[in-house]
């Protein structure tokens, strides 16, 4: 990752243009050509520096629900359960964390009812209880990571 890659990451975590030639528009202030920016983002995607490139959707704005959920999985069963949980399309992110509750995932469902229903299906498929921790209040959300 060189200085140009860093500049791309630092300046394009939001605000990617909605216009006919968005890469050309975004490339200009970076001093790059359209092709160069496309190639750079493609490389950063390929080598894993970026996990995604595109719009981030906020499902709650269209009637859906997000929730954070946690499970306590014994070490010897962890990989098996991770596979089961990850196979649910409603699981947007899943992290292993240092705690007795060691699997923490974000659920995104299109409807309010879909959330408890999905949790029941995950409990049935995995054989472990799910602790549902939906947000009761959001104080701040804006992840910006400086490269």
């Amino acid at each position: 990752m060189d200085d140009i890659d860093k500049a791309i990451i630092n300046s394009l975590q939001g605000g990617f243009p909605i216009c006919s030639r968005p890469f050309a528009a975004a490339a200009q202030p970076l001093g790059l050509t359209e092709d160069e920016l496309i190639q750079r983002i493609a490389n950063l995607r390929e080598n894993g520096t970026l996990t995604r490139f595109g719009p981030l959707y906020q499902i709650e704005r269209m009637g859906g629900r997000f929730s954070l959920a946690a499970m306590a999985i014994p070490a010897e069963d962890f990989e098996r359960v991770a596979e089961i949980v990850n196979a649910f399309p409603e699981v947007a992110h899943n992290y292993e964390r240092t705690h007795e509750l060691n699997m923490w995932f974000v659920l995104a469902t299109e409807t309010a009812d879909g959330l408890p229903e999905t949790i029941k299906r995950i409990e049935a498929a995995s054989g472990y209880p799910v602790f549902n921790m939906p947000k009761e209040k959001e104080f701040f959300v804006n992840l910006y990571l400086k490269a």
């Binding site: 975590q13 939001g14 909605i18 490139f53 990571l145």
Partner: peptide, 18 residues
């Protein structure tokens, strides 16, 4: 985007790689 259904459009870096 104006309605907030899209939170933002751009690159999503991998924490670890950075």
């Amino acid at each position: 985007l104006d309605n907030g259904v899209i939170r933002r459009i751009g690159v999503v870096p991998n924490h670890y790689t950075l």
